[in-house]
Design a binder for these strands. Structure first.
Lengths: 212, 212
DNA sequence: CAATTTTTTGACCGATTGGACAAACGTTAG
DNA sequence: CTAACGTTTGTCCAATCGGTCAAAAAATTG
């Protein structure tokens, strides 16, 4: 029996392993060149196998990308999911910013893959944006609104607050080459994430300090 | 004599006009699909001419992109160039944020073209980033440092302040589809730029209010 | 061992791509 | 008019692309 892409059943040990190798290679290639800029040959070479061999595990180039994007969104939303109102609002926000910045530092390829997809108009994940993502944001917006009502943080627009956190943190992954070019050799080393963390904490925590 | 791409001399009126039409079409196509994702045929069609005709004005696909990127950087740096210390620091910063946000609103294609290039590792404009861009930022960092020394704004990292302004404003162009998907039909209309402007002003101006 | 199934590969295919080129067309100057 | 120059197009080409296929090689099973 040939492998059925639709049925998760019947995956042998080799299939599971090779599919992981391919996905890892595809993440590397897709995040660096975008979907249309990447070729199956490139991915196959990065995965250490021939093109027909790769196509034995994923029938179409788009299947690889789709699998990658589905996994990605879960990883990507995880930090926001952790945001809840059991702790102190300022502490919660600081933790969220830190987690997002750590993701930009530790998973820049994932961030760039996501950025690539959105830049092209999100043709393959639009439903997920309007569904899962929007629902999660709506939920967290209510949490933030609660903080504002109770005077724990300044009143402002919760949606744009979330956008600002996304934008500033992901910037260090997506625009990494620009950040390093501007900072130069001295300031552009690994310490840039520490500097960024300090700055962003100050910006957001001072910027959201409740007036009273 | 055939047209020399290297010599700006000898451009007829028709050449100037057609080159502009091509660049406008290329901006549309490149910003939506990236460099490798765009074809000469697409650009030619958007420009209302045949592919060989287009190649009469630009010998290679890359020449179009290069011309576009060179112009782009000038446009892109203009708002930052205007930042100087003749006015009140807070007013200057507010103006800068507003100008950048207006650019994201009025020139989203340019923003996405730039983002695409940086995402791919800036293969074609790296020298400009390390040269012009870095020099300009270094200069403005000194301006901001002066404001901090004189106690007009809070002491913080000027480089990351600039990054944060870039990231938050360009986010509304580069991640537009995500912003609109998350905001939904009600809040995602044209008013979103007004909301963003209000939020960003509050965030940055409160976040940078000097502690006295 | 042999039979069967899974994995791998070389060769191939049609479509698309960036680009070349010569011929045709248009325009202008003498 | 004609010669020269600028512009446009149809046709063509080599390279690359995503993907197929049959057959070989490995692995698994009995």
């Amino acid at each position: 029996m040939t492998m059925e892409g639709s049925t998760p059943r019947g995956r042998t040990r080799i299939q599971k392993e090779k599919r992981e190798v391919i996905l890892e290679a595809a993440l590397e290639v897709f995040s660096a060149n975008g979907f249309r800029g990447s070729t199956i040959d490139q991915i196959a070479e990065a995965a250490g196998m021939s093109k027909p061999n790769l196509l034995y595990y994923f029938r179409r180039k788009e299947d690889i990308h789709e699998t990658l994007m589905h996994r990605l969104l879960d990883t990507w939303l995880a930090p926001l999911k952790e945001l809840d109102n059991i702790g102190d609002p300022m502490t919660e926000l600081r933790s969220y910013i830190r987690r997002k910045l750590e993701m930009a530092r530790d998973y820049p390829r994932e961030s760039r893959l996501f950025a690539n997809e959105i830049l092209q108009g999100a043709p393959r994940i639009m439903p997920m944006l309007e569904g899962e993502l929007k629902d999660l944001v709506d939920e967290k917006v209510e949490v933030i609104k609660g903080w504002m009502r109770s005077g724990k943080i300044a009143r402002t627009d919760p949606w744009h607050l979330i956008f600002a956190i996304w934008a500033t943190t992901q910037h260090y992954a997506d625009f990494d080459v620009q950040v390093r070019a501007v900072l130069g050799p001295d300031r552009g080393g690994e310490g840039r994430f520490e500097d960024a963390a300090r700055f962003l904490e100050q910006l957001f925590l001072e910027g959201l300090r409740p007036k009273s």
